[in-house]
Design a protein around this nucleic acid. Structure first.
Lengths: 234, 234
DNA sequence: CCAAAAGTGTTCTTACTACACCCATGG
DNA sequence: CCATGGGTGTAGTAAGAACACTTTTGG
């Protein structure tokens, strides 16, 4: 890092792509903007980083403040930074984007000063330009792609599930996020065969219909070997 | 992104992990810092982003200015952002880090105002704390890990090679970066079998000794299916 | 009994491993 | 001829795909 050049001042923000599965569809969390610019439009939850605050901390704080969602125990990771000079009409801004994955929460959305936060299907949010403020459509697209690819080789899929879950629930995560149908038998064998991916709890789910499924919790391993492949399983 | 909070001013920099292979070892590009802080210490090449400049553009510009290296045609991608509040003693700074991979250049290092830029073995640079300024050791570590994992499923390995190369050269990239020995025969079959990874040129290399190898150039595909796996090959 | 979903068995096929072996060149 | 690395053949094995089949519940 050179120190010879004078440095222009930037604003630094964090924005989060928060994904969950509701009603068999992948949803993302968005807020309605209260002020200019892009007033009234949808945007990813986020805000300015404080002076003495770490980037990760800022992402978690903004999420709680704007949407009431705490990602304690859930998955959160940095997605990338977005700094096109014209991305914010007010000033030069760089946004550090995060990806978070949470279970389907019982509508616990709407935090302290969250005017309103809503879940919307990702496909709908991405459908046309201008639906999201700033470059948030690009960020959402990248977050979706990150989640899709990380399903292959990491245990991120379990973050969509409650603390204990059935293999069928986990399979549905893969089916919804990848948009494919998977063979139930092969999927069961696969995920229970990868060491440290899921651990049996000994308990059983009590379904409306059909044989009760065994309940699992997420395992210690976050990386899957061998990976599940998006192209192969069905 | 909320606009209700006042935003503190940040400095935004770009820093680059530039990797190449020299003398059978993985090397990274570093500069010696001319000014405070960390004067005289080694650092990754980088500098402040200009007011009207895209982040990617800034990374490329700083690389040319500080080291004389142009990544035209080479691989460059964003690695992540580093913004610990105490990472720069002068002011609050966020650095957007990039990973670049270049062929072994004929010592073309040392640009306009590059006091001096040097290649050093990555293992040596990472060996102990304090060898690199700021949090550049963390960034270098992350860049190395990114390169290692991307060898598996992307064609990034060809970026270490000149425009045309033999399969043995490409194999050496994998061996050096992963720190393993690979079976020459299986590797050859594998990489020539993945569609769009490498394309034959019809020409032959003229080695000191042994049978001349066919020369290839990189193919169109940047993603490898099926992937090479770090654990399997050998 | 039937319906429905969970989970297992079985066969086919693909792709990686190990390693033997032949090929093309220089000396 | 030999040495050296380039490249292919081949047999064994691991793992995914497809799909039949059994298990366990509720009604």
């Amino acid at each position: 890092m050179a120190s010879r050049t004078k440095h222009p001042p930037f604003a630094v923000t964090v924005d989060a792509v928060v994904l969950t599965i509701r009603a068999q569809r992948l949803h993302a969390l968005v807020v309605t903007r209260g002020g200019e610019p892009f007033q009234g439009q949808l945007a990813l939850p986020g805000g300015f980083v404080h002076v003495d605050e770490d980037l990760d901390t800022a992402a978690r704080r903004e999420l709680v403040e704007e949407t009431g969602i705490s990602v304690r125990g859930s998955h959160i990771e940095q997605l990338g930074s977005y700094g096109r000079p014209d991305r914010d009409p007010r000033m030069r801004t760089v946004s550090v984007a995060y990806l978070a994955v949470v279970p389907d929460l019982p509508e616990a959305v709407g935090g302290d000063d969250a005017a309103d936060a809503h879940w919307h299907p990702v496909t709908w949010l991405l459908a046309r330009r201008g639906r999201l403020a700033f470059d948030h459509r690009d960020i959402l697209r990248d977050g979706l792609e990150r989640a899709r690819s990380k399903l292959e080789y990491s245990a991120i899929g379990t973050s969509f599930c409650p603390p204990t879950f059935t293999i069928a629930q986990l399979r549905q995560v893969y089916e919804v996020v990848w948009g494919v149908k998977l063979d139930a038998g092969n999927f069961h064998r696969k995920v229970t065969g990868v060491r440290g991916f899921v651990e049996p709890t000994g308990k059983k789910a009590t379904p409306e219909v059909g044989r009760p499924a065994e309940l699992f919790r997420r395992g210690k391993n976050n990386s899957l070997h061998p990976a599940l492949t998006r192209t192969s399983l069905s």
